[in-house]
Computed example of a mutant assay.
Amino acid sequence: MTQSQVLIVQHVPWEKPGRILDGLDDLGVASTVVNIAKSKKPDLPDFDQMAGLVVMGGPMGALDYDRYPGLKAEAKLVRAAISVGKPVLGVCLGHQIIATALGAKLAKGERPEIGFAPIKRVDKHGFFSMWDKQIDVLHWHNDVVGLPAGAQLLARSEHTKVQAFRVGSALGLQFHLEVTPTLLEEWLDEPSMVKDLKAAGGSKAQLREAFAACNPQIQPLADQVFSGFAARCNAYAQTLGAASAQPAV
């Protein structure tokens, strides 16, 4: 990358950045999307020019390195980004990749969490300053993670102790604030997602109805979280630009 950009790591075509990308676009922060899950030695953009890192969701396990060797490279990338203070955001699988990259344990949850259900705020942070104590959000996961050492727990749910955390320059979200109405329809056109939904006792009609009911509360929270992340990426990009403008000594 000649220009600083936010690197967005996708794992499957339908788990897109959605509102995360909207937040970046609103501030004019450039981004590029890659899928490196199956690459043993992925070709990645210049790390020094990365203004931030987003790791999206996917159906694989965070430690499934045998089938998806690129996940190991993602974990290394997460650790490197956090070590130098680059903004990092992980959603669902991405949340689990951040946690496990920093030494947290990965396990199967008590039961799959699929559909809308409440999470409870444990601690207040700038990203969640407008958030009430409890809010219904979209869940879609089987695995859960522990809290990395030194991390601040931000949210939990009845069946998942770590729903959101902050550690260094990274924010992990087990739930899906990024999903827009259009993206939801893409999920519901994907057979594997529909299979999971039905196995959890849900239906397309129920999920659409719940999304319509919850979205007016979720949209402002998503805007705050993702605009905050975009602002951090923009500020980091400016430091990169300032550094590159310095004359060589």
Rank of each mutant, 00 (worst) to 15 (best):
E158Q: 15
T100H: 00
W187Y: 15
N142K: 06
S169K: 00
S169N: 01
G115D: 13
G146E: 12
W187P: 01
L184N: 12
D136I: 00
V122C: 07
G103Q: 06
W187G: 04
V145C: 15
Q163C: 08
M130K: 14
Q152D: 10
Q134C: 06
V167N: 01
A117N: 13
L106I: 07
T100R: 00
K161A: 14
D136F: 06
F116P: 12
K105M: 10
E185C: 09
Q96D: 02
L102V: 04
L188T: 11
R121F: 09
Q163R: 01
I98C: 05
K105P: 04
W131S: 11
S169Q: 01
T100G: 00
F116W: 11
V179G: 10
A151F: 06
G126Y: 04
D132Q: 15
I97E: 02
P181Y: 02
V137Y: 08
A149Q: 15
L153W: 03
H159C: 06
E178W: 01
L183C: 06
G172Y: 02
F128A: 00
H176I: 05
Q96K: 03
T180D: 12
F116R: 02
D189C: 10
Q152K: 13
L177Y: 11
P118W: 11
L173Q: 13
P181L: 03
L173E: 13
H176K: 07
E178A: 06
E113Y: 02
V122S: 10
A107Q: 13
T100W: 05
L188N: 10
L188W: 12
Q96S: 01
A151S: 09
W140F: 11
L138K: 05
V137R: 07
H139A: 10
A99V: 02
D136N: 14
F127H: 11
L188E: 11
G103F: 12
S169Y: 00
E110V: 11
K161R: 14
T180E: 11
G115I: 14
H159K: 14
P112W: 00
A164E: 01
H176N: 09
S157R: 04
R156T: 15
K124H: 04
T160D: 08
Q163P: 04
A149N: 14
Q174A: 13
P148A: 05
R121Q: 15
T100E: 06
F116E: 03
F175V: 11
K124C: 14
Q96I: 05
G146H: 05
V122I: 14
K161H: 10
G150H: 05
F175T: 12
P112G: 03
D143C: 11
E185N: 14
L171F: 07
A99H: 02
T100Y: 05
H141C: 07
E185F: 08
P118D: 11
L188M: 15
H139R: 12
R121D: 08
A149Y: 02
E110P: 08
L154D: 04
T180V: 12
E178F: 07
D123F: 07
K133G: 10
Q163L: 03
P118R: 02
R166F: 01
L188R: 13
F165M: 07
S129T: 13
H141M: 06
K120V: 07
K124A: 14
K124E: 14
D143W: 13
G172Q: 11
R111M: 02
E185G: 12
K124R: 15
H139W: 13
L138A: 05
I119Y: 04
K108V: 03
D136C: 08
P148W: 09
S169W: 01
H125M: 00
L177P: 13
L106H: 03
K161W: 00
P112R: 06
V162G: 03
